[in-house]
């Protein structure tokens, strides 16, 4: 009998509850890896897009032209682009309404940008909590499976007259697989959660800075308009 069959047999011979625990942990592990891959791709794209947009923004392009380019693009807007679009649209609309008070203009734009920022953050943080849950809970679930398996194993021991370690060893080995699976699901989830939450935090700071800078630019423009008007 070779090793593969052996491990497989250990899993197959485990009691029903322990098998359920194992299935749960396997599902959690697969799902958390799915989330990891999705999140990684999403964050990488958000970073590269915001970097590109910022380069474009600070390269001295005309803001109206930039707005037209962003608003006319077919791709869904995300990150800095979305914030810029929301702020500038609000600013333009208020100005066209004939409002000339600089603070009112700026505040409106800033509010719009804040809303967009919150939405963006929500989007970036989506499902991160799942990783955190898997990371913290799955070792306990695995441990539960193990305890249950060992319990059963010892109960079987109680019924026999001549107790040997050989009678409980397979049962304990079976049960310990559950703990191994729990740890296996938890470790990548914790590592990925830490990495991603750090990345999201950095992006948030970045977005926030951009929001403030853009607001100050809009404020100046509004004040100039006010002076002219």
């Amino acid at each position: 009998m070779n090793g593969e069959l052996q491990v497989w047999e250990l899993i197959r011979e485990a009691s029903l509850l322990v098998q359920c625990v194992m299935a749960l942990l396997a599902a959690a592990s697969i799902t958390s890896w799915m989330v990891i891959f999705r999140k990684r791709q999403m964050l990488a794209r958000a970073e590269s897009r915001s970097r590109k947009f910022e380069e474009k923004f600070w390269s001295g392009a005309d803001l109206n032209k930039l707005y037209d380019a962003v608003a006319g693009s077919r791709e869904p807007r995300e990150g800095l682009e979305a914030m810029f679009e929301a702020g500038f649209r609000e600013f333009t609309r208020q100005r066209e309404d004939g409002r000339l008070d600089a603070d009112a203009l700026t505040n409106g734009a800033q509010r719009a940008m804040r809303v967009t920022l919150t939405r963006e953050m929500d989007r970036l943080e989506h499902r991160l909590s799942f990783l955190a849950t898997v990371g913290s809970v799955s070792p306990y679930v695995g441990l539960f499976g193990t305890v249950w398996g060992i319990m059963n194993s010892f109960r079987g021991l109680a019924g026999s007259q001549q107790a040997t370690i050989a009678m409980v060893a397979p049962g304990i080995s079976e049960a310990l697989i559950a703990t191994a699976m729990g740890l296996f699901a938890a470790i990548p989830a914790v590592v990925a959660f830490n990495k991603f939450s750090n990345q999201v935090e950095r992006l948030e700071v970045h977005y926030d800075n951009f929001k403030e800078e853009f607001a100050s630019i809009l404020n100046r423009q509004a004040r100039r308009l006010q002076e002219k008007g």
Partner: peptide, 12 residues
């Protein structure tokens, strides 16, 4: 999502 699922299965 499917791509991520495939990658996750591959890892396992």
């Amino acid at each position: 999502g499917l791509a991520a699922f495939g990658l996750a299965i591959a890892v396992h």
